[in-house]
């Protein structure tokens, strides 16, 4: 097991290296000049050129890459072109809202989707099953921002029970923190509820047809015990896989939700940085996302051994 973990962690190094080179080149080859953005609308060409030199963008591409990669190996992400702050400082400021939003979303999605999927499988072909599957189709089909605006209109503007936007850090009080996460988490969770519920239903349905389930029933076990102890446990591997993929996808999914609910997280930072062509920030955030993606996948693989003793690394 330890050898497997070590191998997987070592394998992340070339992956991250490739991501670093790809992102670096992609940013330099796409249109857009951070110097022109910084200089403002009324700046002349000379002013833009001076800023470009100051930022080191006038140097050859290879020199720029060597400088950036050298700093990166020392753990230095560099300084944002715009904020006069280090990229590490910016990420530290923005990571809490994204982690909180992602955590609540996935918890909410799992708590709702898994029971829904199990019930839909158990009540196969009933109106409950069709209802759950109908909701899944709707959850997949409606864009996140539409759900967001709808929830804001109903809960924040019409009923006034929850805030429209913003984020409060947990240090500012637990209720203000939770209050501002309810609508964004619910918005973002819809698509994951749809996804996880469908997979849970399919997996449980497949297991329910197995011989050992019939045996369990023959032994006189209640439906609840059969479902929870025998069916769900054996259906868990694909469900955990899809939850894991969901966590990884959340990294990208938070971008729209953070914009609609004005949550100053990593998603917003990425969008701001891309629009402003803030190369050091974009590079660091994408590398961070890559690390998170690799680690989540590793955790999913490791969780299989807990759920299915036959799986060994």
């Amino acid at each position: 097991m330890l050898a497997f973990i070590a191998r997987r962690l070592l394998a992340t190094i070339p992956v991250l290296g490739m991501v670093a080179v790809f992102v670096f080149l992609l940013l330099r080859l796409t249109p857009g000049d951070p110097a022109a953005v910084i200089a403002g609308d009324n700046a002349n060409s000379q002013q833009v050129e001076e800023i470009r030199e100051k930022l080191g963008l006038a140097q050859p591409l290879l020199t720029q890459f060597v400088i950036w990669a050298g700093k990166l190996l020392q753990g230095d992400f560099g300084e944002s072109f715009f904020f006069k702050k280090t990229v590490a400082e910016l990420i530290t400021q923005r990571i809490e809202p994204t982690l909180a939003l992602s955590f609540f979303t996935i918890v909410l999605a799992v708590l709702i989707a898994v029971p829904l999927g199990v019930i839909a499988a158990y009540k196969h072909d009933s109106w409950i099953d069709r209802g759950v599957m109908g909701f899944s189709v709707l959850g997949f089909s409606v864009p996140v921002f539409v759900i967001g605006y709808l929830l804001i209109y109903v809960f924040a503007i019409e009923w006034g029970v929850l805030p429209v936007q913003g984020y409060r850090r947990i240090a500012e009080g637990f209720w203000p923190f939770i209050e501002r996460l309810i609508l964004p988490s619910a918005t973002l969770a819809v698509i994951y509820i749809a996804l996880i519920a469908r997979i849970t239903r399919a997996s449980v349905l497949e297991v329910l047809g197995e011989d050992y389930i019939r045996t369990a029933h023959a032994k006189g076990l209640t439906d609840r015990v059969v479902l929870m102890r025998h069916a769900l446990r054996n259906a868990a591997v694909p469900i955990v896989t899809v939850i894991g993929i969901g966590i990884a996808l959340l990294i990208g999914g938070v971008v729209v939700t953070e914009s609609v609910y004005n949550i100053p997280g990593l998603g917003r930072l990425t969008v701001d940085a891309v629009l402003a062509r803030d190369f050091p920030t974009i590079q660091a955030v994408i590398l961070l996302f890559s690390v998170a993606y690799v680690l989540v996948n590793l955790l999913i693989d490791l969780s299989y051994t807990l759920l299915d003793p036959r799986i060994r690394y």
Binding site: Y149, I152, Y153, A156, I157, G160, P163, V164, Q165, G166, S259, V260, Y261, N262, P264, R268, V271, D272
Partner: peptide, 18 residues
């Protein structure tokens, strides 16, 4: 000065007196 890049969200926040 709050940074709310989404215009609709800013308008909603004003309507809700936030």
């Amino acid at each position: 000065w709050l940074a709310i890049p989404d215009h609709q969200t800013a308008v909603n926040a004003l309507l809700a007196s936030e």
